[in-house]
């Protein structure tokens, strides 16, 4: 007896599809529905109102929050892109021994496996007013007063983001770079291209899909973050999601749902924008 191939495939992906539908698909729909509900201080009231959305678009905090989140997203994206591309380029094209290559790659990825919150926290004793960095600079006589902008500032937020998310950028770029046939580089060298030209004309276009994939990871992570901003800015900055979290903490579910829907629309538009520039399906399929 032969099972029809389409049926066999459905049986194989069925469990995964079910879980994703139940715990992702349905919740998305529920959030969208609830965003039109009303609420009082104890309960959610099923009805259809647009007040939640009106409030979001009439409040000037919304614009400020999005601006702040977008600012972080763009800065972190640019920094992780430069670092990720440089490191991947180094590992793929400059390290010759395969063993050393794997070893260095593992060294980069090991911190990724440890707790995100701990990794973020670890910057506090380092960057603090009496932290290691200020102590070192003072002992070296470079500064007489501790630097205050290091911790509980936008600077600290960006440092923590870069620390947490560079790997998300580096790994996809590394993957697509590793797939480039080194003979292409040799051919370009034979044609007289400089290292810089090779990078710009050969390497960069061929790892576009990796860059796009990494960009999607980094941008969505930053846009969805709330704890880094909260801790590292010392409460001075806020992000879209940290405001959302406050609403949830106050049990204001319908306005929280509306903010979440608006956020997701923005994020999806950003992802769609990246996908418009680069087709990553090829990268995912292979």
């Amino acid at each position: 007896m032969r099972i029809k191939p389409a049926l066999a495939s459905w049986l194989q992906i069925g469990p995964l599809a079910t879980v994703l539908t139940l715990f992702f698909g349905v919740p998305v729909v529920v959030v969208i529905v609830v965003s039109f509900f009303d609420f009082d201080h104890t309960d959610i009231v099923p009805t259809f109102i647009l007040d939640n959305y009106q409030e979001i678009f009439s409040s000037e905090t919304t614009g400020r929050l999005y601006l702040s989140s977008l600012k972080f997203a763009v800065i972190v994206w640019a920094i992780t892109l430069v670092i990720g591309f440089t490191l991947a380029n180094y590992l793929v094209f400059h390290v010759r021994s395969l063993l050393i290559k794997i070893g260095l790659f593992l060294l980069c990825s090991v911190p990724f496996w440890t707790s995100t919150i701990i990794r973020m926290i670890s910057w506090i004793p380092f960057l603090g007013r009496n932290g290691l960095f200020n102590t070192m600079l003072m002992n070296a006589g470079l500064i007489s007063q501790p630097l205050d902008f290091l911790l509980f500032s936008d600077f600290a937020v960006i440092v923590a983001y870069v620390h947490l998310f560079t790997l998300f950028m580096m790994v996809p770029i590394f993957n697509s770079m590793a797939r480039i046939d080194t003979r292409l580089i040799e051919a370009a060298k034979d044609a007289g291209a400089s290292r810089w030209t090779i990078l710009r004309e050969i390497v960069l276009p061929l790892c576009k899909s990796g860059i796009a994939l990494g960009s999607i990871f980094v941008v969505t992570q930053v846009m969805g973050d709330f704890f880094v901003v909260k801790v590292m800015s010392g409460g001075q900055s806020a992000s879209v999601v940290s405001a959302l979290q406050n609403e949830i903490a106050a049990l204001q579910y319908p306005p929280a749902a509306a903010s979440a829907v608006v956020l997701v629309i923005v994020v999806v538009m950003m992802v769609a924008g990246i996908l418009r520039v680069v087709d990553i399906r090829k990268e995912l399929a292979s």
């Binding site: 919740p27 998305v28 959030v31 969805g224 949830i248 749902a257």
Partner: peptide, 18 residues
């Protein structure tokens, strides 16, 4: 994968609440 984590959590907890 690309959805903000808190959004998914919100959805799941809303379902249980409703």
């Amino acid at each position: 994968l690309v959805m903000p984590g808190l959004f998914v959590g919100l959805g799941v907890s809303l379902i249980f609440q409703l």
